[in-house]
Write a protein that binds this DNA or RNA. Structure first.
Length: 585
DNA sequence: GCCGTTTTCGGCCCGACTGTTTTCAGTCG
């Protein structure tokens, strides 16, 4: 797919245009980039099928950009972009990743210090050269250094949402081969860690294809999108895809599949612990199986499935998301593993935006999509007025929206459809912890979500008190993305999480597990703390369009990694129970 | 450069926050 390459070129062009203060064009290019990035179909396919006119049908792509796409598909280059790069040969997308660095500052840095990439930027900052530039200062220099640390730390770590679709795509392609018996995801991706270093896949070959591995590996290393083949062998091949994601494929024997999967799923710490348990029982566990010493010789006693591997060393099956050696082994030994929430146990999504606040879909469309997912309810929680930029709703608009929702619910009732739209809002927690909507209006909604969307850089105690005050508001039932972190981009704001959890527990307020792959907030550690205290949680997608509803599984994975059970997750409950919870406050 | 229930021109999300200033530019969402 050329979509990603084009997206990154257009995004760079937007930055170049921004440098020259050209009005409006940057936004157009930025929008085109964003659309291409998220386009589920290959632009090349569209072009082959429908030509340039077909490209122009994509919203956000007009005549000129369609023309540039065609130029790229034919020549692999866009002349105008090459010209821009020649004029200022900086790695714009790399530098833009540094939080706080934008086109204008990059331009200054290039013109004064000839900085073109991250390494040079770091060196200049370390040598104190940046603080002397006009309109830069010591603080900016320090922020840049901190930003670089973030980029570096995240380099080579991919979001779950980047790695998982790629892995699933590869599996879908290889599954078509008749030689493939099983092929599954292993590694940190299987454990659904929030960031992934590389993708590990594990396969077995059908017994009737003795030469099958050759065919499978050959297909694998020739998949579209591969930019480098590191290794090519019959049991292990390793390749790099675009975006620099590395993928390993291993082919193992059918009777070693379980032990290999256990081994390659990790975590490393979990594996060390399981091997120790095996040793303590006179057994040996490795990727080839579980072995017992009989008359001086190791004899294999398990290996085909993970279940039998765990059983052989005296443990119940442990879900991959729990395999971190943070207590799951001990719990397993005592028969106290939690019955963590399953991927199909969510009954509704409580944090969603509609076209009323600039979301892509109407309330009706969001509801229909939720119904198609088998949900029993959906909560519409548009932004409120403080977030003018997000078209936040004021009191009157909220009341108008309430009427529309009542109408839709009446319609469902009339058609005997067992589905309900709940009306909420995502109110803003202002600096002092008050909300930006009057209580008497909040009182008319089914529930209120409150979240911090401004002033992230508060002192820990101040921020904690700010959120606790919002928790104490009687209408606030859920706190959205409670720590404000953006994975690989922004740290959580400093927060006394124990105080927050205590306040939530005392007031019957739920905390959100935001399923948006860049947020996944709360994280696993905090979820587990919440679960241990008995604080209730809501897994929400924070959808701004109906397709985002599908991201719920990222949030469920996070909940599972935090040991959450259905009794902890309020939106796994039937509607009456959920409403009772809301009323308890 | 894109778009159109104000369609082929004239709009285009705009306020908060930060760090630099001493009135504002740049970035973010």
């Amino acid at each position: 797919m050329k979509n990603q390459e084009l997206a990154s070129i257009f995004s760079a062009m937007a930055a170049y245009l921004e440098m020259d203060e050209i009005p409006f064009k940057p936004q157009a290019y930025e929008k085109a980039a964003l659309i291409l990035e998220n386009l589920p179909v290959d632009v090349e396919e569209i072009y082959k099928r429908e030509g340039e006119k077909g490209l122009q049908k994509i919203p956000g792509i007009g005549k000129r950009i369609a023309n540039k796409i065609v130029e790229y598909l034919h020549t692999g280059k866009i002349k105008e972009y090459e010209k821009m790069r020649k004029k200022m040969p900086v790695k714009i997308n790399e530098l833009m990743k540094v939080e706080g660095l934008g086109p204008k500052m990059i331009k200054e840095l290039y013109q004064h210090l000839k900085i073109t990439n991250l390494e040079q930027l770091e060196k200049a900052a370390q040598e104190g050269k940046i603080r002397n530039l006009p309109r830069f200062g010591l603080k900016t220099e320090q922020n840049i250094l901190q930003g670089i640390q973030f980029v570096k730390r995240s380099r080579g770590r991919f979001l779950l949402s980047e790695a998982l679709p790629l892995a699933e795509g590869i599996i879908a392609s290889l599954k078509k081969l008749p030689q493939i018996d099983k092929i599954v995801i292993a590694g940190s991706l299987r454990r659904r860690k929030e960031t992934i270093g590389d993708i590990d896949l594990l396969a077995t070959i059908k017994p009737d294809y003795p030469q099958g591995a050759k065919k499978v590996m050959n297909t694998f290393v020739n998949l579209p999108g591969i930019i480098k083949v590191w290794d090519y062998g019959l049991t292990k091949s390793s390749v790099r895809f675009k975006k620099k994601i590395d993928v390993d494929l291993r082919v193992v024997k059918a009777d070693e599949f379980g032990s290999a999967l256990q081994y390659f799923t990790g975590s490393k710490e979990h594996n060390i612990a399981t091997r120790k348990i095996a040793i303590s029982k006179g057994l040996k566990l490795n990727e080839y199986g579980v072995f017992r010493k009989i008359r001086g010789k190791w004899k294999k006693i398990a290996g085909a499935t993970e279940e039998e591997v765990y059983q052989a060393i005296g443990l119940p099956y442990i879900e991959p998301e729990l395999r971190t050696n943070r207590g799951e082994i001990e719990a397993a030994l005592q028969g106290k593993l939690p019955r963590i929430i399953k991927y199909n146990e969510i009954r509704g999504d409580l944090h969603n935006h509609s076209s009323w606040d600039g979301g892509k879909n109407s309330i009706r469309e969001m509801a229909e999509a939720a119904r198609l997912m088998g949900y029993e309810y959906i909560g519409i929680t548009d932004h409120t007025k403080f977030l003018r930029i997000e078209h936040g709703l004021d009191e009157k608009q909220l009341l108008d929206q309430h009427k529309e929702i009542e109408k839709l619910n009446a319609e469902f009732k009339k058609q005997k459809i067992n589905f309900r739209i709940l009306h909420g809002c995502e109110a803003n927690i202002l600096n002092d912890g008050s909300l930006d909507i009057e209580d008497k209006v909040l009182a008319q909604l089914d529930y209120v979500i409150a979240g911090v969307h401004s002033r992230f850089k508060m002192k820990k105690e101040e921020m904690t008190q700010r959120i606790i005050r919002a928790i104490k508001n009687p209408y606030v039932k859920i706190i959205s993305h409670p720590t404000g972190r953006l994975i690989n981009r922004r740290d959580a704001y400093p927060l006394d999480i124990d105080k927050i959890l205590n306040a939530a527990l005392e007031t019957n307020t739920a905390l959100e597990i935001n399923a948006c792959p860049e947020r996944l907030d709360l994280n696993d550690i905090n979820i587990r703390k919440a679960v241990e205290k008995g604080v209730k949680l809501a897994i929400d997608t924070d959808s701004h369009e109906k397709t985002h509803l599908q991201y719920i599984h990222y949030g469920i994975a996070q909940a599972r990694r935090g040991w959450a059970t259905p009794k902890d997750i309020i939106n796994s409950w039937p509607l009456p129970k959920l409403l009772r919870f809301f009323q308890k406050k």
